[in-house]
Design a protein around this nucleic acid. Structure first.
Length: 418
DNA sequence: TCTGGGGTCCTAGGACCC
DNA sequence: TCTGGGGTCCTAGGACCC
């Protein structure tokens, strides 16, 4: 059996942990630059605020319903996530952390009553961290996802844990679950499936293999089996990432090459720091730039450049040079750029790689970067920067940021008493 | 004025090989 | 008039997830 444990309205719950007065009140969390709504409490959902709502368009709704608005505080959410995952790891040796707010546990060899087991997890996480979670348990991962949905939707009845352990329960769940809510069926495929008059997960399982293969590739066929109770989607071991990206939407349109160049270098430096921390070197990178798609009257342009490196490296200095080659190749004058990014890929471990006959990474850089990483981790992000980066650190708009309650040790933080 | 970010997997089609 | 057959590797783009 597999369990899927999912934190309820995770970001909103994190804000509530240290500000209990917010319990029962509507909360929304905004993306970078306070752009879009990326998380909502149940109360905020009830006010009709959709996921991804642009903050400026919904300003009046926030005021009308007295909604508490927060800038995303990923430091806080990341730390609380670690605590939740740590607790849950005690319930099975086989844990897959699937995202910041959910994980799978393989419950092989657990002989007690599974509903009790799930409720125990929920209770302990709530008491130790203040984060409410829902637990779904079933014979396959996609069914555990479905069970989790039931647990969450009918918390009053289920107490926050639902187990699919009989054929009757499996069929009942699939006949209840909408096709668009099936894990692995996205907007595009849901539309295709619905055009056949199929609306429930159960009916999706009845579709012919030929149709599924043709329209949804082998991914769809695996999902069908998994929903039918044949475990097909396995636990995934933690492995180093295959690509690492830093991408941003800017708070204004950048119209000069220098401005865009500075951002690209900063993104590259950030990516380089990330691959070093997973002990990889990269062999290729992509740079992309995009105009402002919301300004329909402006000339639209977007492009990307893939640069293959002559040698594998994780040196920010070398990577920045290659990234700028890419930028130069695609940069077009006269465009207002609104978004850009850098993606590193084709990784090899930093301990074992093929030396090129003619080119190699500057051997001094490895030590230099190590020193930079040490300094920055001790004294704060970007204390040591490349000269091509901006003199001042690019500050995001974060007008409603909560304190880093759990990770900021130097400051005294006032926590409101419950 | 303002509109998110970071990943994975799969496939079709092109380039190349003998 | 007529133009082989069977592979592999790579990449861009599209689907999905949170």
């Amino acid at each position: 059996m597999y369990a899927l444990i999912d934190c309820n309205n995770f970001y909103a719950s994190c804000e509530r942990v240290f500000n209990p007065a917010l319990r029962g009140k509507p909360i929304v969390i905004l993306s970078n630059n306070d752009g879009c709504v990326i998380a909502r409490s149940n109360e905020a959902k009830a006010c009709g605020i959709p996921m991804g709502a642009p903050a400026f368009e919904y300003k009046h709704v926030f005021e009308q319903y007295d909604i508490h608005v927060f800038s995303a505080n990923f430091t806080l959410y990341g730390d609380l996530s670690n605590r939740v995952m740590n607790i849950l790891s005690n319930y099975s040796p086989d844990q897959e952390i699937y995202s910041i707010d959910e994980c799978f546990l393989k419950l092989t060899g657990i002989n007690c009553d599974l509903t009790e087991y799930g409720l125990k997890m929920r209770k302990q996480v709530l008491r130790w961290t203040g984060i409410p979670v829902s637990v779904g348990i079933a014979p396959t991962k996609s069914l555990a996802k479905a069970a989790n949905r039931i647990a969450k939707k009918f918390t009053d009845k289920t107490g926050g844990c639902y187990v699919i352990d009989t054929e009757d329960k499996r069929l009942k769940a699939l006949k209840w679950l909408e096709v668009d809510d099936v894990w692995g069926i996205g907007r595009r495929n849901a539309k295709k499936i619905k055009s056949l008059g199929v609306n429930k997960a159960f009916d999706f399982c009845q579709l012919s293999k030929t149709w599924v293969l043709k329209n949804m590739t082998v991914v769809g066929m695996r999902l069908q089996d998994d929903l039918n109770g044949i475990p097909t989607i396995e636990m995934e071991p933690v492995e180093p990432k295959q690509s690492i990206a830093t991408t941003r939407t800017f708070d204004h349109d950048c119209r000069t090459f220098e401005e865009v160049r500075e951002r690209i270098v900063t993104f590259t430096v950030s990516c380089a720091e990330k691959i070093r921390s997973q002990h990889s070197l990269c062999n290729a990178l992509t740079v992309f730039i995009e105009s402002n798609r919301f300004k329909e009257n402006d000339e639209q342009y977007s492009n990307q450049a893939l640069i293959k490196l002559p040698f594998p490296t994780s040196s920010a200095i070398e990577l920045a040079k290659f990234a700028l080659q890419g930028l130069q190749a695609i940069y077009k004058k006269g465009i207002g750029y609104k978004r850009a990014g850098v993606i590193l890929m084709n990784f090899v471990p930093d301990t074992e790689y093929q030396q090129s006959l003619f080119y190699r990474s500057n051997p001094k850089h490895a030590k230099l970067m190590q020193a930079v990483d040490t300094i920055n981790s001790k004294f704060g992000q970007q204390k040591v920067r490349l000269a091509t980066q901006d003199k001042k650190i690019h500050k995001m708009r974060q007008e409603r940021l909560s304190p880093n309650y759990t990770t900021k040790l130097n400051d005294i933080i006032e926590i409101k008493a419950d």
